[in-house]
Design a protein around this nucleic acid. Structure first.
Length: 494
RNA sequence: GGCAUCAUGGCCGAGCGGCUAGGCAGAGGUCUGCAAAACCUUCCACAGCGGUUCGAAUCCGCUUGAUGCCUCCA
């Protein structure tokens, strides 16, 4: 029996603004598309948060025994900073700055993105298509949009006619905007435009002579509009209608709105059943962004080389920190919060490791089955990871009292507890054990520290506390913490 | 300016009308040669003002403050 038959998952649908029971189009299978990064610079922690939010979604769907096809694109064609005539393409800009090919820029930052995701222990998507690999598909969609009467050509460029579309469709339904309001509130743009209306968006842009990335098309040598690639690739790999479309909150408008318009214009039906938007990670109370420089990079976090944090943090701790907030909430990145999460994370992992040393009894003082279901309830409620983590800490408390002999548990319950902890900590949350993560802990070091612990024990037995304290304090200074417990001394690296 | 969202204890963060999460910090305790670590116990909330209700952090209105989108953005 597949788990999704016994667990009912509810997802907050951005378009209805309600939590809805999740029913996939094809029983037992899920199609999910998530907007990936534009690869013209290193991904920052804010970008990572979104991808880790959807990694959690992907993992939980898989855990529920769904067959998931997870498509996440790489935007490797630069798009203009605006639809006007004066925009810059960030990839081309970077290429010029570094005096390399645009595709070298793309390659460099795609590799960086993959390495970063892998350090966070995020699963790779099932398909990771690139925009430049789907130019033909995009051209076909443009032809169809024109044929349907929703696109128009100007000087070798093609634009989507939002006004015409809005006559028989509803432009703005995802982001809750009305076209009339948008027209009323149009900003005064100095630059003249080829567009009939400021709300129209580019499907194809004719390349200016100095523009490097260009492809032939029926209209001009040029490049596709930003919104088009996602429509092309999601349709190609998931069909005209699929289950889940995700992305960062900042893509809701105009990007996702335009995707809906394009797909509806061509396919005559709404492309997505469940829209999911991950909220922003802020720094100093403001959204992290590449352009403003208000951001922190994963490498700066892992190395501790940054101005915001007092020390380095592992990828697992950072991920745990982010999962302590729900994906739809704004989360502020701060030193204090990270430190707090790190302690909690270690506590959780310690307890998990201690499960193996628990002795069992004839009866259990806690109801493991209902606790297990409460873990599912948390995740079933729109992937509420903070509540899941709270539930895991309930188990931590139980494990610790078991260890102290204050409570009891049967063999069966202990196994169930262990399996459930394992499933949620490692499979669903995708966390890694910090001791293996910081695997500077090699045998050589262990041997040396064990020896020092032994010498210290002898000194203590002889009441030579000057020596024993020197060993303890000096080790502390180099970052090794000795921990005296009931059955001997252990150590950890800080 | 327009459209949204949010405001919870010292800090982070759940909560979606009654049973008032969780983590960190603080306090008390157990353990210890002393510590640290670990563990146990525990204090502290719902931006302000009205309203609906037997009952509101939770629903409605107003006020104040913050953020996001309206241009590339996760």
């Amino acid at each position: 029996m597949e788990l999704h038959n016994t667990q009912s998952l509810f997802i907050y649908n951005s378009i209805s603004k309600k939590k809805e029971k999740f029913n996939p189009i094809n029983k037992g299978a899920v199609g999910m598309y998530v907007c990936g990064p534009t690869v013209y610079s290193n991904v920052h922690m804010g970008n990572c948060r979104t991808f880790l939010s959807f990694d959690l979604v992907f993992r939980y769907l898989k855990h529920l025994d769904y067959k998931v096809r997870y498509v996440r694109n790489i935007t490797d064609a630069g798009h203009l900073e605006n639809d006007g005539e004066s925009g810059q393409d960030p990839i081309a800009k970077k290429a010029r700055q570094e005096n390399i090919e645009p595709m070298e820029v793309v390659q460099k930052y795609t590799v960086d993105f993959h390495q970063t995701m892998s350090r966070f222990n995020a699963l790779p998507p099932s398909i990771e298509p690139t925009a430049t690999g789907h130019i033909i598909e995009q051209i076909q969609i443009i032809e169809n949009i024109i044929k349907e009467g929703y696109g128009y050509k100007v000087n070798g460029s093609v634009y989507f006619d939002v006004n015409t579309f809005n006559k028989d469709h509803q432009y703005g339904k995802l982001s809750g905007r009305k076209l009339e309001d948008m027209i009323t509130n149009t900003r005064e743009l100095a630059a003249q435009s080829e567009k009939k209306n400021p709300q129209d968006f580019a499907l194809w842009k004719k390349a200016s002579p100095e523009h490097i990335m260009r492809w032939p098309s029926p209209w001009s040598d040029g490049f596709p509009g930003w919104h088009l690639e996602c429509t092309a690739m999601s349709t190609k790999y998931l069909g005209q209608q699929f289950d889940i479309h995700g992305g960062g909150m900042d893509l809701k408008f105009p990007h996702h709105e335009c995707e809906i318009a394009q797909a509806e214009a061509v396919n005559k039906k709404s492309p997505v059943n469940y829209w999911m938007h991950a909220n922003m990670l802020t720094l100093n109370g403001k959204k992290m962004a590449k352009s403003t420089g208000n951001n922190i990079l994963p490498d700066e976090l892992f190395s501790g080389e940054n101005t915001v944090l007092s020390k380095a943090f592992t990828p697992g701790v950072a991920k745990f920190f982010m999962y302590q907030a729900q994906y739809r909430s704004i989360l502020d990145f701060s030193n204090e919060a990270l430190v707090a999460s790190e302690k909690g994370y270690n506590k959780l992992m310690d307890a998990y490791r201690n499960i193996s040393s628990i002795t069992t009894a004839d009866s259990s003082s806690n109801d493991i089955s209902s606790w297990k279901q409460s873990c599912y309830d948390a995740m079933n409620d729109d992937f509420n990871s903070p509540i899941l983590i709270a539930q895991l800490f309930e188990a931590v408390k139980y494990i610790n009292t078991l260890k102290e002999g204050k409570t009891s548990i049967t063999k069966e319950d202990l196994d169930l507890l262990q399996q459930t902890m394992q499933a949620f900590i490692f499979d669903v949350l995708g966390l890694t054990d910090i001791t293996t993560e910081a695997s500077g802990t090699n045998d050589t070091l262990c041997g040396a520290v064990e020896l020092l612990i032994e010498l210290r024990d002898q000194a203590r037995a002889n009441k030579d506390f000057a020596t024993s304290d020197k060993i303890r304090n000096d080790l502390q200074e180099v970052g090794i913490q000795l921990k005296d417990g009931k059955d001997g001394t252990s150590f950890s690296l800080n």
